[in-house]
């Protein structure tokens, strides 16, 4: 091989190697940026999930009030069944509002609740049951299966407005949101 040819081959190899290096650098960089964007999207979705959970906690359909004086972190038991019925009648609206989420309510503790009064119907299997027999109930389920989701558990007061002043029990509002 002549000196000139050798130089030409050498230059070609250098270009080729240089080209490969640039391609590798570009792909590493674009992968890194793609990951960064993905992380941002996940962050945003997680934040959205938190917002949905907060929205459910404060929805006017379930909130506790006495002459419009509202109590925070509180769910009125007597509004639960009508709300469940309304969501069944108009699921598209509530899916729009609460996205892909599932909401459950759990009766945990009712101080000095025994004997004279039956438990609220929403938490019993048979009317007249003295103690709650179905302690956890799903309010609605718009969650899509198979995807990752976050669970938020909020401690809430459960207001029983059959009596005045209302009785307050302790419960959990469990919100699962797809992210």
């Amino acid at each position: 091989m002549k000196k000139g040819q050798l130089h030409l081959v050498e230059s070609t190899v250098v270009i080729f190697v240089f080209f490969i290096m640039i391609m590798v650098a570009m792909s590493i960089y674009s992968n890194y940026q793609k990951d960064k964007l993905e992380r941002m999207k996940i962050d945003l979705n997680e934040q959205k999930a938190t917002q949905i959970a907060r929205k459910i906690l404060f929805t006017p359909e379930l909130e506790c009030s006495n002459n419009n004086a509202r109590t925070l972190d509180c769910v009125e038991i007597q509004k639960l069944q009508p709300f469940v019925d309304r969501v069944r009648q108009n699921p598209a609206y509530y899916r729009e509002e609460f996205q892909n989420s599932r909401v459950m309510i759990k009766w945990v503790y009712a101080p000095s609740f025994f004997g004279t009064f039956s438990a609220p119907e929403f938490f019993t299997q048979n009317p007249g049951d003295l103690l709650p027999t179905t302690t956890q109930k799903t309010i609605f389920d718009f969650k899509t299966g198979g995807e990752s989701y976050r669970t938020f558990t909020f401690p809430v007061s459960l207001w029983d407005k059959r009596v005045v002043p209302e009785w307050s029990y302790f419960g959990w509002l469990i919100v699962e949101v797809n992210i």
Partner: peptide, 24 residues
């Protein structure tokens, strides 16, 4: 007003229940 209609339905459910359940 869409929200108002939903609220009315929920409150009507509560009202029906309370009509039959007012021990005081």
């Amino acid at each position: 007003f869409y929200k108002l209609r939903n609220m009315v339905k929920v409150l009507e459910g509560k009202r029906q229940y309370m009509e039959d359940y007012s021990p005081a």
